[in-house]
Design a protein around this nucleic acid. Structure first.
Length: 355
DNA sequence: TCTGTCTTTCCGCCGCTACT
DNA sequence: AGTAGCGGCGGAAAGACAGA
């Protein structure tokens, strides 16, 4: 095998550290120290020896074997990105575009390469980390998981295998405590209610969708918390479900009939639907009804630009890389869970109540 | 004896192959 | 079928050796 190859094919064989060591008349450890420029604290090499090794490296054309080096270090300086859904749709407004930009910036700054996992599909046609029953992410030292349609059984399996990973978005998964980076959606929702109250609103509705994801649960929890903090009458601060866009006009009329002067929409789609419904009903925004969207991004330049919660996507990407590297440096560390503050951009569709 | 320089040895990584 | 050994390194520890 390798030995046989060495005998028959020596001239074409790539030179190794051992070859350099032989030619320079030193031990392989010295070659390693010179090639990797190890500090004097670990191993001292005289200038003359260093020169001999460098000459031998040049004469043989020695280049370190990356695979062998990774094997020895147990690291390959590759971070994975696994997405349960396409992250490169045409719209540059895609939620994940900015997150990926942040990931790339931070990975580059720290000298790590990125590897995108996107091919592995299981028999259901759904992307799966364990499509072949083997953790595909092992190619990378650690990975960032994006997407909201994750398979939670796989996340549990990853955690139990002690594979280092970070999720974009808070996850509440029984049995494990995954590391994640998320926006502080509850805090931003509280801030939105407070801003409306400061403007004089007392009857404020949260219009939610059918989703039951943590990001949505957090927004609803933030709304409820704000109601308590600000001593608002629960009867005047309802949470209403908008399951079908066709019901928007009816819901809008109903809320206005109840005296509601401000609506917080759980996501941008609901916000735009309500905005259109109000326009059709002849309800002026923000003169008669204020509207805040808890999900960006809004369409810049559109008429009646939406007041919006700004999700720090780029920072989330950067923080995810930071956390991954912390997990790599200290595999025994407790899960690192971070919620970044989300600012509110209260322009366009927010104003004081009519009376 | 101390210091500087270097060698030797060992472990770990893991897929693959040869050997028992 | 099971096991040992190899490849090609990095890194650390222990020790050898020469010269001051």
């Amino acid at each position: 095998m390798a030995k046989r190859r060495a005998d028959t094919d020596d001239a074409r064989r790539r030179p190794t550290q051992a070859d350099v060591a032989r030619l320079a008349g030193v031990s392989p450890a010295i070659v390693s120290a010179v090639v990797n420029d190890r500090p004097a604290g670990t191993i001292r090499v005289s200038e003359a020896t260093r020169q001999r090794v460098s000459d031998a490296v040049r004469r043989l054309g020695y280049v370190p074997n990356v695979a062998a080096r990774n094997l020895a270090r147990g690291r390959n300086r590759i971070l994975g990105i696994f997405s349960y859904e396409p992250v490169f749709p045409l719209e540059s407004q895609s939620f994940y575009h900015e997150v990926l930009v942040g990931i790339e910036e931070e990975a580059e700054a720290r000298g790590y390469n990125l590897l995108m996992f996107s091919a592995a599909k299981n028999h259901d046609g759904v992307r799966s980390i364990y499509a072949d029953e083997i953790n595909a992410l092992q190619l990378a030292d650690a990975s960032i998981l994006v997407g909201t349609h994750e398979r939670r059984d796989e996340i549990v399996r990853l955690a139990n295998e002690r594979y280092p990973f970070v999720m974009i978005g808070r996850r509440d998964i029984p049995g494990i405590e995954p590391s994640y980076v998320s926006g502080d959606y509850a805090g931003a929702t509280r801030d939105a209610v407070r801003a409306l109250v400061d403007l004089g609103h007392r009857r404020i509705a949260l219009v939610r969708g059918t989703g039951r994801h943590e990001a949505e649960i957090d927004r609803r929890a933030g709304f409820t918390q704000a109601r308590t903090d600000l001593r608002l009458d629960p009867a005047h601060t309802p949470q209403r479900l908008l399951a079908d866009a066709r019901d928007a006009q009816h819901l809008c009329a109903e809320l206005i009939g109840d005296g509601v002067t401000a609506i917080i929409a759980e996501n941008a789609m609901i916000a735009r639907t309500l905005q259109r419904a109000a326009r059709r009903s002849g309800v002026p925004i923000p003169q008669q009804l204020s509207l805040i969207s808890l999900g960006g991004p809004h369409t810049n330049g559109s008429p009646g630009r939406l007041a919006t919660m700004l999700i720090p996507r780029r920072d989330m990407g950067r923080k995810a890389v930071e956390i991954l590297l912390q997990l790599l440096d200290d595999p025994g560390a407790a899960p690192l869970q971070t919620q970044l503050p989300c600012e509110l951009e209260l322009t366009g569709t927010v104003g004081p109540p009519a009376h």
